[in-house]
């Protein structure tokens, strides 16, 4: 079944190759648990393509930097929302993009795998029980130097996959494979709500602890598909000089807060920021807090429609749920 899907992807891509500069897809990385982005320019490159739960990267991240080209891109359900957001915000032209959509039932969180097994010299990985039959019977078989290890897939999936409601790309030119039923639970933002229950001091201490570990590598920013001012980012700007180069808690924290605020109403929770953080700081929590507010106040969710008008990108005299003055008629 998996191989059918790759063949279908190759066939669809082959037909488009002449019309685009190149296609962004996934290839096997340095070991069986890692995938790596690959540019497919010729039919020869098609052989490198793979698609399985190791394809964690959001390839939409690379798009903004490649503006002006005509590209193809392989997207999972979650990645497609980033593409939608880019198109909606006028940051990419839809007509210059050929989208290969791959329904996806979840990708690995290698941090979770690492807890269960020493994977430094993993020899092979087999995903078993693939198909639209739900997560329950699916497993990951790892061949390790010390023998085989069988892990239930549910235990090692990324958190976002456990609450995924969009397994099927919401925007595509080619849908490769059968559409899947959402397996994720409704996202109630219970994690954020639980965090909000802590006292101000507890929350403050939590973030002080977390932010003190930030090394200002900006991996989070660079991995974000919607952080589009990379070349003029506030963090690097001297005019105005919002952030100094000092490695103080204040400066680190300010950067993360800016990052979160700039994504208010835009973030699709692809989780690339947190995945790419070498220090394992839970920065997605900040963005989820913003999204929770967005949902409660505006009933809005980013990256679902290219036609939607984001609440923070528009101007209304009166908002339904923001009562800054009484209105009569």
């Amino acid at each position: 079944m998996a191989s059918d899907r790759i063949e279908a992807l190759k066939a669809a891509m082959a037909a488009e190759l002449g019309k685009v500069d190149f296609v962004l897809g996934y290839a096997r990385g340095f070991d069986p648990l890692h995938a790596t982005p690959v540019t497919v320019r010729t039919e020869k490159d098609l052989a490198k393509l793979i698609f399985d739960p190791t394809c964690v990267q959001n390839l939409a991240t690379s798009l903004y930097g490649l503006r002006g080209k005509r590209l193809g891109v392989v997207v999972k359900g979650c990645d497609s929302r980033s593409v939608i957001q880019l198109v909606q915000e006028g940051l990419w032209e839809r007509e210059n993009l050929v989208i290969f959509g791959l329904p996806c039932n979840g990708v690995l969180d290698l941090a979770k795998v690492r807890v269960k097994a020493d994977i430094t010299s993993v020899r092979s990985v087999v995903f078993e029980g693939e198909g639209p039959d739900g997560l329950e019977n699916r497993t990951v078989r790892l061949l390790l130097p010390g023998g085989e290890k069988l892990l239930p897939l549910r235990d090692v999936l990324a958190d976002k996959c456990l609450r995924c409601r969009y397994p099927n790309p919401l925007i595509h030119d080619h849908m490769i494979g059968e559409e899947l039923e959402p397996q994720g639970a409704e996202d109630t933002y219970a994690d954020v709500a639980a965090f909000e229950k802590l006292s101000t001091q507890e929350r403050f201490d939590f973030w002080k602890r977390q932010m003190s570990r930030c090394i200002r590598c900006y991996a989070c920013r660079n991995a974000c598909p919607l952080c589009v001012c990379k070349h003029v980012c506030l963090a690097d700007s001297r005019e105005p000089h919002w952030l100094s180069a000092e490695a103080t808690l204040q400066e680190k924290w300010l950067f993360q807060v800016m990052h979160a605020l700039h994504l208010a109403g835009r973030c699709t929770e692809c989780g690339e920021c947190q995945r790419s953080c070498p220090m394992g700081i839970p920065i997605l929590l900040l963005k989820r807090k913003m999204n929770k507010e967005l949902k409660e106040i505006f009933g809005y969710e980013a990256g679902v429609s290219t036609e939607a008008v984001p609440p923070l990108h528009t101007f209304l005299m009166e908002e339904d749920k923001i009562k800054d003055r009484g209105l009569l008629w």
């Binding site: 915000e89 589009v228 001012c229 003029v232 506030l234 700007s237 005019e239 105005p240 000089h241 919002w242 700039h262 923070l312 990108h313």
Partner: peptide, 19 residues
């Protein structure tokens, strides 16, 4: 505040002045 790349500045209330 909407401009993603801060290409628009309000004269007499620029980012630098506010900062």
């Amino acid at each position: 505040v909407t401009c993603p790349v801060r290409a628009i500045q309000l004269q007499h209330f620029t980012d630098s002045q506010l900062l």
